[in-house]
Design a protein around this nucleic acid. Sequence first.
DNA 1: CAATCAATCTAACAATCATTAGATTAAGAG
DNA 2: CTCTTAATCTAATGATTGTTAGATTGATTG
Lengths: 220, 220
Amino acid sequence: MEKRILKDLLYEQVARIGKAVSSPKRLELLELLAQGEKTVEVLAAELSADIKLTSAHLKALREARLVAARRDGKYMVYRLAAPDVAGLWVTLRQVAAAHLAELHLALEQMAAAPDTLAAVGREELLEQARCGELVVIDVRPVDEYATAHLPHARSLPLAELEQRLNELPRGREILAYCRGPFCLFADEAVALLQARGYRARKLSDGVSEWQAAGLPVVAA
Amino acid sequence: MEKRILKDLLYEQVARIGKAVSSPKRLELLELLAQGEKTVEVLAAELSADIKLTSAHLKALREARLVAARRDGKYMVYRLAAPDVAGLWVTLRQVAAAHLAELHLALEQMAAAPDTLAAVGREELLEQARCGELVVIDVRPVDEYATAHLPHARSLPLAELEQRLNELPRGREILAYCRGPFCLFADEAVALLQARGYRARKLSDGVSEWQAAGLPVVAA
DNA sequence: CAATCAATCTAACAATCATTAGATTAAGAG
DNA sequence: CTCTTAATCTAATGATTGTTAGATTGATTG
């Protein structure tokens, strides 16, 4: 049966993408690269993995054409091959959260800790941020903010938050976001802000989630 | 580092979904189940695989909560756990087609054979079908048509097409669709119709693709 | 009840994959 | 040119996975 051979070929190609996203480390790499391009060194540090292993996983992602690399001096700088790869990551995470009770519970616990603003009413949120009723802060490293960030958000990296508290208005409510639902930066920021008497909440969306929802982002 | 343990747990869960979609056979099962519920027997026949292997792959999909099963007499009837699983399949296939040259070329060759109507102008197509300018036929087995089909489409399974040619109007253009871009039913239908002097084209979308594009379908 | 059919479970194999260590390449610095 | 740093390649490991065969379960039929 010649049809079988053709079908096997077609599904085999899609399975290449599936294989690429079948490893926790590779998924974490995709999420990191969705924030902007990064060197192998930086990626390895974020993964808490060594360079060799990180490089091997990046090779697998490269062979599935999900990421691409360029050389910059001694550094190799990796990036997502295209924006739809970030969309794939968001889709996978959403399907996992919807179907796997373990993940759903873990995310609910995370959301329960500080007051979290789920994905509800994103348009409304946008309007509140625009008119200044709400102060939206991006607590990721500044280069990730520079790559793309939510509209009306200002950069205030978690590492600098404590020193730069004076930049925040006392009265208004603060909304912190980071890389997405799996990232803890915003949780830490909210905890710090609340300890200092600010009214602060977390937005569980990151830039990829925002974009996947069809909302506008500010890109470089 | 406690954060590492939490992160590993989170990404591990998403990787369960990734692992489930990392096998060509399992992807084919998902596409088949996206057409409607089916028994293990039927699925095995469609896969050209034996029952044991099919059952093992279904178990993997069940453990990732992508499919669910119910017993009907001696038969186990499998179905997608939720509609978003069909969306995941469509997303994976689109990412694969966009990034993997091998797949892109294979699909282009398939599309080149008979005149194929790609995904362009779907709304327009809908309107032409509504007013009868275009005759849309669903050439999948009738139970799949019954589960869900495109608006204004009539069921004319490939297996019965030759005997039921008289049901088709001579003058108007015919548009055949099937399970999606990887399915060959519509190609065969178009070849048969063109051989009999009909003006026929293929629509590469299936119901899942149509739905993923945000367009309405007729469901049971 | 035994016989049959659909499907799964168990055990086993080879093939593939993740991870680690050691050697190697490629670019920049001295 | 040599030394250092970044990253990859190669080889080896243990663990998983895909596949097949044989035994088993669950429900229906005679």
